[in-house]
Design a binder for these strands. Structure first.
Lengths: 141, 141
DNA sequence: GAATACTCTACTAAAGTTGTCAAGTATTCG
DNA sequence: CGAATACTTGACAACTTTAGTAGAGTATTC
């Protein structure tokens, strides 16, 4: 249960590759594709979204590629996933775009809300820097 | 992102209704259907699964219905969801039935694993009793 | 024996996911 | 200039999952 789509997964892995070139080495999409084993065409969709949301910028022409707009330590996994898949919304009640139909208080509303907050809280504390440094292996984060 | 399927959601809500009759009042499926606004036929599938896994038992004939097999305080939301949707598996790498294809250490493996553990940890601390008593509203659980 | 109530399997429409494809634009370097 | 590199965008389609419906059957009580 609670599977993350491949877009989100690949997005994080792509950002990880781009982060490794920060701040001055643009990473071409082809390189990301080879290293992370994801097709160039699919990556384009993902990186486009991340670029439009301001997480990365692109440099055209030979020697070009993608570069982070902020320090790896300032880009959380949560922010990447939110741009690609929207906010955590365990149920449709909690999706800002849908909302709850049932007027009376739903017994499980608070449950899913708490869970969502727990998840986002965690994802917002982990950054690309942590991924590069392997912080997750070292402490109890 | 990370939406729970309706089967899981309805399952928890159905268990909540059944819990209210514990220990001696069987709740007929029709009553659950009306109170939680889910079709009888769909509920049948869900309750069948929960019965086969031993969380509830059924009593046939007039006056029959479903009854919990354990105290509400001893049935966690996590256990209900696991029976209906399998274990938390943010990515296919972490699904016991699939496993990771990439032999080399995936940079994000630990990330998704930690997240999954956080989620299951939370869901295992909340019980049907908490749902009935509204514990989530009262403390910081 | 009629009413109540659970049991089980098959099936399907809709939605979402996971990509591919093709045509185009921008930039650099020799 | 012009060729190579690299990003940009939108359309589209196969596949899978989800969310449910349908229907025939079994068991129990009063």
């Amino acid at each position: 249960m609670l599977r993350l789509s491949t877009k989100g997964q690949y997005g994080v892995r792509a950002m990880f590759e781009i982060a490794k070139g920060y701040p001055d080495k643009p990473i071409p999409i082809k390189e990301i594709s080879e290293r992370q084993d994801v097709s160039v065409a699919y990556l384009e969709q993902i990186l486009n979204k991340l670029r439009n949301r301001g997480l990365i910028k692109s440099i055209k022409g030979p020697g070009g590629g993608y570069v982070l707009n902020k320090k790896p330590a300032n880009i959380s996994i949560g922010s990447i996933l939110r741009e690609l898949e929207g906010p955590v919304a365990i149920t449709s009640c909690l999706d800002p775009e849908e909302g709850c139909i049932r007027v009376d208080g739903c017994v499980t509303y608070m449950l899913w809300k708490s869970l969502g907050e727990k998840i986002e809280g965690f994802l917002d504390t982990v950054s690309l820097y942590d991924l590069i440094e392997g912080t997750l292996y070292k402490n109890s984060k």
